[in-house]
Write a protein that binds this DNA or RNA. Structure first.
Lengths: 327, 327
DNA sequence: GTGAAAGCGCTAACAG
DNA sequence: CTGTTAGCGCTTTCAC
């Protein structure tokens, strides 16, 4: 079933059918109705592959994120997809995982489908990946990470700022002993190191440090806390690189009769539903993923529709510490 | 940068470049090396759009699932994507949400890109959707739900069997009073109704029934349990349509001093990490999503590679009740 | 093992 | 407002 079939049934030229589908304003209502009837009758589904080849616009954008299990990414992808869809672009979602192993191969097949734009998380691109993206000649938004040298546009936040802010938050509350549980992915490590550095700068003591292999799980949090049990004889403030780790740590702490927050204060990261809905609700860092998705879509659309000047998109997404019952 | 550029740099015909990329066996090693050098030098990324139009094979399959927040779907998509990728197919993932509102529009744009195959969750297709899928002329696997009349192939399980199995499980343990908390999506309702029917058939009493709007959340579980507090004066067995609801219910119950499992036995659904890693770990129903993904990919690939007879794929995915500390 | 010609289904560009 | 012509970049098919 192709456009010529519809055209001959409706008694018009193929180009007119194309116009009815893509630019209905430029067709008289009468012929449009005829064409639509033919489309309906034949169950015609336009071949976007052919259309894309001809127009050099795929009406599709590629999005690469490590996971959407994280609420920040889930929210981001949700609003990004919604915003792009409204503007007539479909989002092709690829989950890259946290390993950077075959990202170049992934990019090759992705770019081979000639997306009109690219959203990509994590700025740790290999030189090859960097070059492929640059040479694709499409607008690019990098998210999640504040890179030293963005390829094009950027919507992110500084992970070091987060670690520092949590440290200051704890210090202001008067804590002097601290511990961390962190996944080993680069961003989590950045947050954790920055936290530790700020603590050290202020004369605090780190009494426990645990690192677990990404991705974070509740069980990993439980196990990590079990390992630092001996250090928790005096009041300690714990910063976890994920709410899952924080929840696991709290679960294990309660299991061992450690009072929260009296003996163990806890702050997580991510604002998972778990952080607000479990008992006690725990303090965490919230990053506005949904807002980031909207901003990223806005940047790309501004380029794609070509209105106005070439924007130099570069935005820091706000984050905030949500204080709850564990600090 | 196109295939003719590579061809002229390598001093061969475009067709030879195409062969080096797609069927390297049919090219002499010497010319292949020349061509590969040219590809490398130019940073050539083949245009899969053009290739797809010409060959009528997009090397892409579309997958439609309501969400990947659910571990069953997450596992399914993971193994499905891996299996297809190994066979040379990219997966285009679309999240449809639980509403069936604009599924037809979604399908139209999806099928417009001419995927070579389709994986689709939930069998509640509108007549229009059903027709579009049938007429696409590609292999289709429906998952998650055992439909009355599958479009093509099917990998699923019977939600009514799950409800019944959980009812029998509770009955065998000697419970006589029961309650349910269920999301209002069709599959959850099926499980819950089947559970209630089996309980009624065996003379048990349903002392509480709560329905919440999908998607399930921990908070909704807490709130639902709060509403049935007056009914929980005697030992009761609770079946929740999701582990999130079950965790919420348990959290609220403990908050009100209701002993688990003495006064409230709990069984969830989904085998989220929460069910095994929280304290106490709770009983739940596990569905082998990962296995389902592998099976679905196998079905599709058997059709796509065209080896052997036309399979009539129709499989029930196994589920099991994982008994833990709450029953 | 390699090349030449033709065309996949659609739309840009230009006429009328 | 509608139609015609000429490709988009690749692969199929057939020759050599």
């Amino acid at each position: 079933m192709k456009i010529t079939d519809v055209a001959s049934l409706a008694g018009v030229a193929p180009m007119t059918v194309s116009r009815v589908i893509n630019t209905p304003d430029r067709v008289s209502p009468a012929t449009a109705a005829k064409v639509r009837a033919a489309i309906e009758q034949l169950g015609y589904v336009p071949n976007l592959i052919a259309g894309g080849l001809s127009s050099r616009r795929s009406r599709m954008v590629a999005a690469v994120v490590p996971t959407i299990a994280h609420p920040m990414f889930a929210g981001l992808i949700q609003t990004f997809t919604d915003s792009m869809r409204v503007a007539g672009y479909e989002v092709m979602l690829s989950l890259s995982g946290y390993g950077e192993n075959d990202k170049e191969a992934l990019l090759r097949t992705l770019l081979g489908r000639r997306p009109d734009a690219l959203l990509i998380a994590g700025a740790a691109h290999t030189p090859g990946a960097f070059q492929m993206i640059s040479e694709a000649g499409i607008p690019v938004v990098e998210i999640w990470d504040v890179s030293r040298r963005p390829i094009d546009m950027l919507v992110g936040f500084d992970h070091e700022d987060v670690g520092k802010a949590v440290a200051r938050f704890f210090l202001t509350k008067g804590y002097t002993r601290f511990a961390t549980i962190s996944a080993d992915d680069p961003r989590a490590v950045q947050r954790t190191h920055s936290f530790a550095a700020e603590i050290a700068r202020s004369g605090g003591t780190i009494v426990g440090e645990a690192t677990i292999a990404a991705p974070s799980t509740i069980m990993a949090g439980r196990k990590a806390l079990r390992g630092m049990l001996p250090a928790l004889t005096e009041p300690t403030a714990l910063f976890c690189s994920s709410d899952l780790l924080a929840f696991g740590a709290m679960t294990e702490a309660r299991f061992h009769g450690i009072p929260i927050p009296e003996r163990l204060a806890v702050c997580g990261f991510g604002n998972f539903e778990l952080s607000s809905a479990s008992e006690p609700a725990f303090t965490t860092v919230n990053v506005e993923g949904a807002e980031a998705g909207r901003i990223a879509a806005g940047f790309l659309l501004q380029r794609l529709t070509g209105n106005g000047p070439k924007v130099e998109g570069h935005v820091h997404v706000p984050f905030s510490i949500l204080e709850r019952a564990t600090t």
